[in-house]
Amino acid sequence: MGESTEEKIKILLIEDEKEVAELYRLKLSLDGYDVTIAENGQEGLDKTIKVDPELIFLDIKMPGMDGFEVLKELRASVKTKNTPVIILSNLDEQELIEKGLTLGANEYLIKSQFTPEGISNKIKDWLVED
């Protein structure tokens, strides 16, 4: 797992549910990632600029800006246009999944269907090419 602290891969987790965010941070930290949490959409966009994450986990249902709006912004920005964005949501409507993928999400994952380990493994899928 994590070899050296200065080489840690930066992951941004945009998630309003504190308990959920805490859970994933715990696991991803254990797996050696540098995890930053944003509690809402706007904070997510701010921290994207600040942190420049290599991969973003994005929740959909959030107060204020929802996940899709955040995604649109991310894809509209030259800097984050190609940053892998994995939607992590407990909303599983097909309509929403399609919408997420159409807007440029790399993947749409239903939280309850994945263990923290499963989520962590997904990072490797998207970053192994680099």
Partner: peptide
Amino acid sequence: VSLASHELRTPLTVINGYLSLLLSGDI
């Protein structure tokens, strides 16, 4: 229904997540 399942799934995700971490020995 969407909302309710979302709301039900959220605590379940957390419960499930911690249990899996405990079981795997991560924590």
